[in-house]
Structure formats: C-alpha cells, structure tokens
Design a protein around this nucleic acid. Structure first.
Lengths: 197, 197
DNA sequence: TCTTTTCTTGACACCGTGTAAAGTTGACAT
DNA sequence: ATGTCAACTTTACACGGTGTCAAGAAAAGA
C-alpha cells in the first residue's frame, strides 16, 4: 500500500541513522529527525508513535542494510573453535562502530522506556548466542578452560565484547579499532582457551 | 555556621543515598528525595542548586562514610605486584556495590549534564590511578606481559573493573559477588601477568 | 526582642515527548 | 473531472521533571 509511505519511512530511518551516528552523543530529538527528513514532527509520529519505536526500527533497518547475519555467518564457517572465536570477534567488533550511535541512544533510554530495554536485550541476546556458539565450538575441541562452564564462559565473552567496553577503549581511551580487535582476541584467548596439549 | 544547615544537609545526603541504593533503577526525582528527607523541593534546591550537585555531593559523602581511601590503602601495603593486583581488585570490587546506586544515576545523566560527566570522570580517574599503581608494581617485578605498555595494561584493567561490567555480570547475569571477584582476579592475571620465570 | 538564617508556599518558565483535531495536497479510480 | 482516500501540515495543548522567583513563616541566636 502506497509507495509513498514506504519511501518516507525509509527516508526517516536513513535520516535517523545518519543523525545518530554523526551527532553522536548529543541528544537527537524527534524534531531533529523530522526536520532532517523534511517532514513535520507530527508526520514523524504518524510513522513511529513513540521514540522507542523509531529507534528500534532504526536498528532493524541498520541490521538489514549492513547485513549482520552475513557477517556473523563467516564465523560459523570456521573449522576449529579458536578460529571460530577469532572470526566471531572480527565480525561483531566490526559491526560495533556501525551500531554505536543507535546503541548509545537506545542504551540511554533504557532506564526510562520498557520498549527500549526489551529491544536492547533482544539485540544483546543475539550477540550472546554468537558468543555461546563460539564457546561451544571451543569445548568441542577440548580447548575450553576446564574450570569453566559453557555458560560462565559465555558470560565472560559477552562482557568482554560489550558495546560499553568498546566505547571505553576506543572513544574514551583513544584506542584504534585494530588495537581494540587485537586486544579482544588475545584477551578472549587468555580468558577462555586452554593451551594446546 | 549554623548547625541546623549542616544537619539538614547531612540528612539530605543520607536520604539521597538510601533512595538511590534501594530504588535502584527507577528514577529518583528531586521531589522524592525532598519528601523522604522531610523538606520541600525548594528547600532542597536551596542546598543543592542542581540535581548533578546533589549527586556529586552524595558520592563524596559516600566515599567519606565508606572510607574508600582506607580500603584502597590496603592494596598499597601489598609487597609483590601480584598481591597488589589482587588486593586492589578486592578493595575496588568490594566498593562497587556500595556506590552502584549513585553510579547508575550519575551515569544516566552523563549524556545530558556536563557536571555529572566531569564528576564521573573524576571518580573513574581515581580508580584508574589505582589500576595504574598495580600495573606499575607488576612491571617492577618483571611480571607484566612484555608486549604491554603500562598505559595499555592500565586501560585493560580499568575496562575489566568497570562498573558496567560489574553490573552486567552480577545484576544482569546473576553472578554472586564472590564469583565476580574471583573471575576478575583470574581474568586480570590472564590478561596482564607473565607466568613466573 | 530583634535580626538573620532556614524553610515554606505557591507561582511560573522551559524542554521534550506525546496527543488531538481540522485543514491541505496529491494520487488514482471510475 | 470529479470524488475519495491516504499522507502530510498546521496549530494547539497536556504532562512530567528540572530549575527559578518572590513573599512570608518559623526558628536560631545575639
């Protein structure tokens, strides 16, 4: 129904994304997005009744455009557990800069908005599953540290790879993306992987 | 001057602290604190012109009451670098639950309020210094991983010990405080410490 | 008792989100 | 071409929370 509505919707999402990634940090208001998209604030509310709705839709749009699934699929192709761990870290770490703007906005309204909280939990659950898959692959190779359960190891890996940690190292401490990725790989190995027998 | 003002001030700070630690998460408004402290919202603004001022004062009050300095001093007494690392983790990790409520509030208003941002940075700088001291002690013992500079190692340690990570593991993933502390100690060793020669 | 400090009472401004209703514009169908 | 429907505009307002202002009550202290 109506190509026009879809066009506008897409334009809104693209605009929201751009604003969120560029104006990183500074609050992005509904009126900002509306103005940048060339419509009224009210028209914006016609498409997305709540701010959380818009943010959630933007994440989905982004996931679709950036094709996270394909990116993570690469890690599934890896043979050994260790290769898989590295591949997953590469894939996810490479995706963080793309989602950082929207992630920050979503994170910021977590304490207010239930929808935002659920949306973020949902995204993080997906990442957690990737972590778990890598950990399971390690265990299958008998390379998971013996004192670690799959669940514990998954918790640790998910913690290491959190957006907040990426933010702290790259944004706050000025690390390059390469340094971050390299550090995470060695850190994850040190934390989870048993030395080769 | 005027014992009464100081009394009221202390009562406000104590009340703010209690509200922040108990009603953890849910928004604590200025009116909530005023009411709980038995004064008017306006009287509260007489003592603390901005919400950020109150939060910052509350952190200082808490640091004073809980005596962080003494707690961290224990880590300075340790002989070897490794003991010092463990002692510091014990001290800081033990302090996190105390400050979590206020930390969360301060963190939540970071993106809005400059004062809150500066106050938090200041607190974190103090922690960072503790991290750095431990790292330096390690290096002096020649037990710091050779490919790591003091600065890098400090960044990593500060990241590991961040309040967000504590939150993720204990609050979100349900770890006990003991599990958290133990995991952080082994994680820090795995990440930073060279095996004994 | 008289002064000063502390606190109260009762307003109001501002900002951002979200709602409501009436009017405009353009697409497209018959 | 005309009428209908969907998308958008215009204007206006409610609400919650922070912060401000001014006049008066109450209590401390000399």
């Amino acid at each position: 129904m109506s190509r026009k509505k879809l066009e506008t919707r897409e334009r809104i999402l693209r605009t929201a994304w751009k604003l969120l990634e560029s104006g990183s940090g500074s609050q992005v208001r509904m009126s900002d997005i509306a103005e940048a998209a060339g419509i009224t604030r009210q028209a914006l509310y016609l498409h997305f009744p709540k701010r959380a709705d818009l943010l959630v839709a933007t994440t989905k749009y982004l996931d679709q455009v950036k094709n996270v699934d394909d990116r993570l699929a690469a890690s599934r192709a890896a043979k050994t557990g260790i290769e898989r761990l590295d591949a997953f870290i590469d894939a996810w770490a490479g995706h963080i800069p793309d989602i950082y703007g929207i992630a920050k906005a979503l994170l910021a309204m977590q304490h207010t908005d239930t929808d935002a909280r659920l949306a973020w939990r949902d995204r993080m659950q997906a990442v957690r599953e990737g972590c778990e898959a890598a950990v399971v692959a390690l265990e299958r190779d008998n390379r998971l540290l013996p004192n670690m359960s799959v669940e514990t190891a998954t918790d640790v890996l998910a913690m290491l790879l959190s957006v907040r940690n990426w933010e702290q190292l790259t944004i706050d401490s000025g690390w390059s993306q390469e340094d971050y990725v390299a550090a995470m790989k060695t850190l994850a190995r040190a934390a989870l992987v048993l030395d080769a027998p």
